[in-house]
């Protein structure tokens, strides 16, 4: 395993480029899925409210 992880003299550049790619990819994912979830929750709350207002 240590042999696999050894990237020679370019190790810093290689790990940095993979690291920053993973950070950006995960960051986009978390942000966008978070927005989706927040919108869903808000919509459901509003729909419940609208329904209870209608049934009264």
């Amino acid at each position: 395993m240590t042999e696999l992880l050894d990237m020679g003299k370019y190790a810093g550049f290689i790990w940095a480029s993979y690291g920053v790619s993973i950070v950006v990819i995960l960051g986009l994912m978390v942000r966008i899925l978070g927005q989706r979830k927040a919108a869903k929750v808000q919509l459901r709350a509003l729909e419940d409210k609208a329904e209870s207002a209608n049934s009264q």
Binding site: M7, G8, K9, Y10, A11, F13, I14, S17, Y18, S21
Partner: peptide, 14 residues
């Protein structure tokens, strides 16, 4: 390029 070629796999798809 030696090991540095490994950066191609994150650069080119991006």
């Amino acid at each position: 390029q030696g090991e540095a070629v490994r950066m191609m796999y994150v650069h080119v798809p991006a």
